[in-house]
Design a protein around this nucleic acid. Sequence first.
DNA 1: CTGAAAGCGCTTACAG
DNA 2: CTGAAAGCGCTTACAG
Lengths: 339, 339
Amino acid sequence: MTKRATIADIAKRAALSKGAVSYALNGRPGVSEATRERVLKLAAEMGWRPNSAARALSASRAGALGLVMARPASTLGVEPFFMKLLSGIENTLAARSTALLLQVVPDHDAEVEAYRRWWAERRVDGIFLIDLRIEDKRVLVLEELGLPAVVIGGPGHHGRLPAVWSDDASAMAMVVEYLAALGHRRVARVAGPARMLHTELRTQAFGEVAERLALASAVTVATDYSPEQGAQATRRLLSGPPRPTAIIYDNDVMAVAGTSVAHEMGVDVPRDLSIVAWDDSVLCEIVHPPLTVLSRDIMAYGARAAERLLALLDGDSVGDFEDAMPRLIARGSTARPPA
Amino acid sequence: MTKRATIADIAKRAALSKGAVSYALNGRPGVSEATRERVLKLAAEMGWRPNSAARALSASRAGALGLVMARPASTLGVEPFFMKLLSGIENTLAARSTALLLQVVPDHDAEVEAYRRWWAERRVDGIFLIDLRIEDKRVLVLEELGLPAVVIGGPGHHGRLPAVWSDDASAMAMVVEYLAALGHRRVARVAGPARMLHTELRTQAFGEVAERLALASAVTVATDYSPEQGAQATRRLLSGPPRPTAIIYDNDVMAVAGTSVAHEMGVDVPRDLSIVAWDDSVLCEIVHPPLTVLSRDIMAYGARAAERLLALLDGDSVGDFEDAMPRLIARGSTARPPA
DNA sequence: CTGAAAGCGCTTACAG
DNA sequence: CTGAAAGCGCTTACAG
């Protein structure tokens, strides 16, 4: 077990006070340039790194941010979305020597409890809030605790907390317009849980654009995002009437499940049915046929959120940030509807 | 912003010294039962929770464990395995008020660096080591640092670190014997990266059982676990000769990709080709046909690892632990080979 | 059974 | 520009 160097060790070797060493190490005024360089060199030699607890205690900052995932075990891990988001967040934090605390809980009550605990224990300096709902009590709790947070989702419904969001309404319009241009008149949608804000925004946009384009039918079926429910919804829709000629899925795994159901029911994709998946993933590329998708750079999305939360902690005033529009990538699962 | 209560606040309200309050709060001798109860009640009333930094600093323990995922961004998040494992670990830790630090890095060098940093900063008390390799320098680094760790993987090649493992060799034998019993003589395998220990163990077992059963052919193709490479390997295998009548995939997403390739090539599953996936996930249930799988309780696997790392930190002597054998769940993707 | 004190390793005003 | 000291909120021997 190697020994860890402390600031006192450096001070002794440098024949300085601990305070001077601290100033040198933190790039603050109070020491000469020559002294600073000597101290930095020594610290590097001795492999010194600040004791995170000591620094946290004296500076009143944890050097860590928290993210809680409230999802039932059944859907957890099936969507590539989260790991990509985590990965994007994490990369940005690591570059700034900030740790990420992760907690997995069954529901919002447990999530709120986790926030209260982290706050009381001073475990984290800030929070990434995901899966925003329309009436989201978590927002109120974070505001009440005064725990800095960045919401990943929106726009709207996130109180005074800054958000990083992506324009789901416009993206939805883009997809439906594309399908209508191909000639589709009966379009269905297999959505996520109705209580999620972005589900609601997409549903609203879906209805609006369907009306604007005077589609013959535009049904939305809510699910829990799981492939099972995605499959079930697809079976129901394909059993019509009105049987849709195109279905938009709110995530990749349900689209894959839907493709499989079409196959099982002898419905050819894309000849008899067009399929569009929201959020691309390798899964969408490897199924047969490869799926037409709405693609976003999710790692970059996470990175943006991380940057903004760090800025918030630095005292910068941080407003909402709109991420780039998703791109529509047409692959093999969309075509003109049967005549 | 609510105010956080400290031990000094409690001491004042209880007219006691801070030391006495600490003893009472931590269930240590040195205070009367009556005093202890009074203190506990007060602490609960005031919403007191120990400041994690202060406790970490004085007790020399971080109250946190770390897990680093070293995977290229391309495969990250596609396998449900990790989120399930994380979820199992996390649940166990949360119950013991221990935090989980997560870091995502591109390779083992960066992973080792993360360990050194965490160690130097006293960020974590222990590590979960995943994706064990045959010559794994990470094991040596952790031993050298004296950082307690539990290896998730094995058996063997984990030095003096205790491991939680699952018997891949026996599971492989079980699968091949099942396929042979159905009548298959040409069995192939789409494996993970060769440098991973469990890949090697499975490959070895695959070869041995193939020889024992005198199979006509038993080819293994290495991949990076990604659906793309799974698809590519399947195309190659089905282009034969010898064209296999059954393929075993080392993970679920490659099996799904393989099923899709079979479809694309006009190879009927299971009539012309049987498919078995290692590790079940909802994905395997929803493709058409649903896949025969080797199923494990991955959340429980993670929970076991967490329990053992906590025990290790408590000073218990912790040995290796063999998890339950995977179960073979026969669904629609396996059948007798064509005559 | 209880109190006063030192210490964990930093940061940060405050004198010199 | 530098040093001595207090303080962050706990834990833990050590006296009484």
